[in-house]
Computed example of a mutant assay.
Amino acid sequence: MRLFKNNIVKIIVASLIFPVTLTIIGLILSKQSVNSFAQALADLVVFLVAYLLNRQYFQEKVFWFNRKNGLAQLSTAFPALIIVAFLNSPVLLVNDFQVKFQVILICLLVGLAEEYIFRGLLIGLFLKVNHNNAFGAVIGSSILFGLIHITNLKALPFGYVSAQMIFAAAIGILFGTIYIKTHNLAIVIALHAFRDMFPMFSNKLMQQASQTSFTMASLYVMIVFLGIALFIAYIQLQNFEIKKS
């Protein structure tokens, strides 16, 4: 059907892969069977669904690795790397810090699935819709990345999820800028996993996070972080042009 060949429709379909697939998996699995292995398997299934859909339907070229201009790639990724390291730094001060293989595996698979969809697929689709506007493609994919976290409303209060959505959009802007400039999805997968895994290396921090209540101050901090991410992306992309194939 011609409708499904429309790039806007493709964007909608791509953005729904993650929540729809996880919902279906959740219906299949019982609550008793949900564990670390099941979470890792679910993220792997999400990636495989997205990968197969891309081959048969989206047909977007995903840039997995780029060995050229390593210093330029590092320079582009440096602001995000500093921010992620700063966000993870409190973990180094706790006395129960412990590297866990299952945490590394889960976070790598989450990063693989989410970055493949929201950077690998959606940025390419947004570039087609907005005539190769790099900044617009990064913003569009990042907004959708933030919006998928609305599914957490079933377990968390609205205020907390609102801050989470803004944070996800801000991180998405940083990661999207890196991907669109470096053509290296591996960098953003690694950064994504790096951001997610370090807090999970501490049971104490995870317990504190689960008990954290929403405050307006935290929402303001997320808005400021979003502004910083937008500024970094604007500076890095203001003279950047997509080469037409």
Rank of each mutant, 00 (worst) to 15 (best):
F97E: 01
I223T: 12
N184V: 09
K68V: 04
M206Y: 12
A217Y: 12
I242G: 05
V46Y: 01
E60Y: 09
V224M: 02
Q98M: 13
F225L: 11
P157M: 04
S141Y: 08
F126A: 10
S89G: 00
A72M: 08
V9E: 01
F126T: 03
Y57M: 02
F135A: 10
I223H: 04
I143T: 07
L121A: 02
G111S: 09
I24Y: 07
L53S: 05
Q207K: 13
L71P: 00
S15W: 09
V91F: 11
W64Q: 03
F175D: 02
V221A: 14
S75Y: 15
G146C: 09
I82N: 00
Q211K: 11
N66V: 05
N66D: 09
A137L: 03
H149E: 03
Q98V: 14
F158Y: 14
M197W: 13
I8K: 13
Q207L: 13
L16T: 03
L153G: 00
A209H: 05
F194P: 04
Q59G: 01
Q39G: 06
Y234T: 11
I139G: 01
K244P: 01
K243N: 11
A42S: 15
G146V: 07
G172L: 07
D196M: 07
K31H: 13
N152V: 03
K31S: 15
T23G: 06
N69A: 13
A42G: 06
A137T: 09
N184H: 13
L185F: 07
F97T: 07
I180P: 09
G111E: 03
Q207Y: 12
R2S: 06
L108V: 00
L53Q: 01
N35K: 04
L112A: 07
N95D: 14
L185T: 06
Q238F: 11
N203H: 14
R67P: 08
A229C: 10
G176P: 06
H131E: 15
R55K: 14
F126Q: 02
A217E: 09
G70V: 14
